[in-house]
């Protein structure tokens, strides 16, 4: 079975690298983008099974990326990462087409569960 590909987008370099490594250990092929613009470039170049997108990023934020990518890649599921206490961002993101959201710091088991549920749904 082919490895599922994830695009992980977050401006916190250490966070995104460590999380990518943990997801790789769990069998995913993970690509990284450190901001919204880089994410859109990567989406143009490759097809991903899922995008995991931080909401709060300098420049193009997660919700802006979501708005731009949804009309072009409507089938690609998106899970948002929001700050705690920012449920409004998560709800707004789901209105814009995100499948789900998680609050940071995340629980890896919860993330894996949500990835599994949403990959199976596609």
């Amino acid at each position: 079975m082919r490895e599922r590909t994830l695009l992980l987008v977050d401006d916190e370099v250490e966070f995104v690298q460590t999380l990518a490594e943990r997801l790789q250990l769990r069998g995913f092929q993970v690509y990284i983008a450190h901001d919204g613009d880089e994410a859109l470039i990567q989406l143009e170049k490759s097809r991903f099974d899922m995008v995991i997108l931080d909401v709060m990023m300098p420049g193009l934020g997660g919700l802006d990326v979501l708005k731009q990518m949804k009309p072009i890649y409507p089938e690609t599921p998106v899970i948002l990462l929001t700050g705690r206490g920012s449920t409004n961002d998560g709800i707004e993101g789901m209105r814009l087409g995100a499948r789900d959201y998680l609050m940071k710091p995340i629980n890896i088991d919860e993330l894996i569960k949500k990835i599994g549920e949403n990959l199976n749904a596609t």
Binding site: E12, E14, F15, T18, L19, R22, R84, K104, I106, I108
Partner: peptide, 12 residues
Amino acid sequence: KNVLAIIKETAG
């Protein structure tokens, strides 16, 4: 919280 998220992932 960003700092704590990095520590959490690193410990994980």
